[in-house]
Design a protein around this nucleic acid. Structure first.
Lengths: 339, 339
DNA sequence: TGTTAGCACTCATGCCCATCGAGTGCTAAG
DNA sequence: CTTAGCACTCGATGGGCATGAGTGCTAACA
């Protein structure tokens, strides 16, 4: 017994219905659907086959069928099409970045929030991974600490507090910044670290200091959990699958462990879009959830954004929204000063 | 009829019990308590009086009594004492900041998360308001944008992207930064804005540019929602009052509107500690919640941290934890380089 | 051989109703 | 003023029953 065309069409109809209603789907429901000319009895036989093939589950005898994650996988692989947004929604997406934003962080936060608002699921986003070093600058804080600000060519900047040797004036720091910038400019951190020896050779006096700066630089460029933004996770509580409070708690606390999300998203920043379903995520508390991501590019760097919601997700619609958002993010590059 | 000593002791016993059990408290429960030598009938009479006085509510006839917010108010005003932490918990607080942290943000995030972990409620924190300007520095990003980094004397730093006139070299920007630093150093933003005219008089060519810098400076120093950190809000879902999913959703989405929290917390950063109960918060979705805050000081600036949970909260314990956390935050000042 | 009508069966759901028990208010006696 | 006693209230619990959505199976049909 194999998955012939008719079985496939029936499975599709079941998934479509379940996505909308979140209720087990019965044979009569499918039989009455437009386009389907088979009796409920025939559908029943097919459904029984589909269950045997692993595409459907039955919560209990004499209840309707529920799609398994394998069914969703088939569904998104074979017949998913990106839904085009109604004009008022795509207008809303375009509006988001019209307001003035000083910092990249504001852009990311706004995007994640907007994804939540539009999809009614939880929006997540990771900032692009830092690219090539554009400039490194030390800003004095106290007599023995400075702020090391690193700007990369994709508009990302990071800062961290570094201890500095005593007796360095702001002008000293500026000169050191310039030397550091000169050496590091245009390089990724992977390229900079091997240069350490060469750099250090010239540095007579302040070897240890320079080494600590390089160390910080390397850490700044790593993808980190601070780059992850979660939109309105509370939206998820409106979904019927989370009327069970324990399940809701599991998912929400998974959303709060940012480094887990950072791993998921940064692994997907090189992939145009991805759909990962329940068990495929291999994470506690997310067996019944799906992650839909789409990469975006901003300032030459690649980031990823996505949606976390129940496996019973409107995948086509979500992809449509993410795709509109990607376009909106891309357009930010074109206008200077970020809005 | 007034609130005599006996009524007060009975009320206290009711609140103590309700805080632990979250169940309406009956007269027999109180009568059997150690220290109480009255019969349940007498307690009933007193409880009836307490209800009339507005300190107790009765969900329905023939159920036990539940404290009203007025009762909690009295409770915290008159008989609250800060619970001292068991040694292993205060040890845990001390451990939190032992790990290496590059940025103030990491410290704040760790503190908020720790408050959640220890209390089982949602931890919230606002960074200290920026103090006096220590240094302003422009770091070039592109030919016509720069990052304006402002460091204040309390260790807070902020950055924002500013457009710059074409043709300014990094050295130019450095010089401008030095001028700006010289004028602004040691002043609060409230003091800087009136100086604008004087500053601008000297600036011949780049008036407009300087004006925009001052504008940004002013906005950077405002308390902003980015300074708010929320710990593990999902902890709240374990509380029995949030088994009602709608109530949980209301509170969680209130926790997601950061500017509201920013207002609440920054208003409390000058107050040693505060307890605000349900209706006193005057916020949708928080009628049944309480906010307990405690201010802290870090680098000479005052911030506030706190806990949001059900009104039925272990106030004494929460204050104990916050108080330990305040001490731990204060100690960060003493060791350089933030751990 | 595939399709379908028919039928017995299952199981969740909702409803009614009786029971239970925690808790109350009131009264009268101490 | 306190308290024992008692009738009463009302939510919670659980059994019994009808309902209905849904199934699997069988037998007849094209």
């Amino acid at each position: 017994m194999s998955l012939d065309d008719r079985k496939f069409r029936i499975l599709q109809a079941i998934i479509d219905d379940y996505i909308l209603t979140a209720m087990p789907v019965g044979s009569r429901t499918i039989s009455k659907k437009g386009g389907m000319t088979l009796s409920s009895a025939t559908i029943r036989n097919e459904m029984s086959d589909l269950e045997e093939l692993g595409y459907l589950d039955q919560p209990h005898t004499s209840s309707g069928r529920v799609p398994s994650w394998k069914a969703y996988r088939l569904y998104v692989d074979r017949l998913l099409q990106v839904a085009s947004l109604p004009p008022e929604e795509s207008a809303r997406v375009k509006e988001i970045f019209k307001t003035r934003m000083d910092q990249m962080e504001d852009v990311f936060a706004a995007a994640a929030r907007a994804i939540s608002e539009l999809t009614d699921y939880a929006g997540v986003l990771i900032a692009p991974r830092a690219g090539r070093v554009q400039r490194v600058q030390l800003v004095p804080i106290t007599a023995n600490t400075a702020l090391m600000v690193t700007v990369t060519d994709n508009g990302i900047h990071k800062d961290s507090v570094v201890p500095i040797p005593g007796g360095l004036s702001p002008d000293h720091l500026y000169m050191i910044s310039n030397v550091l910038t000169e050496r590091a400019q245009g390089h990724t951190i992977a390229e900079i670290l091997p240069m350490a020896n060469e750099l250090l050779r010239d540095m007579g006096l302040h070897r240890a200091f320079f080494l600590s700066l390089l160390d910080r630089l390397a850490r700044q460029m790593e993808p980190d959990s601070a780059a992850v933004v979660v939109g309105s996770a509370s939206k998820l509580l409106a979904q019927p699958e989370f009327s069970d409070i324990e399940r809701a708690r599991g998912l929400l606390s998974a959303l709060e462990t940012k480094d887990q999300l950072a791993r998921l998203l940064s692994a997907r920043s090189q992939i145009e879009f991805s759909i990962t379903i329940g068990p495929e995520l291999m994470l506690d508390g997310m067996q019944n959830s799906s992650l839909v991501t789409m990469s975006y590019s901003l300032g030459g760097g690649a980031g990823a954004m996505g949606v976390i919601g129940p496996s019973r997700m409107q995948y086509g619609r979500v992809l449509g929204i993410l795709s509109a958002m990607r376009q909106a993010l891309n357009e930010i590059d074109e206008k200077p000063g970020k809005g």
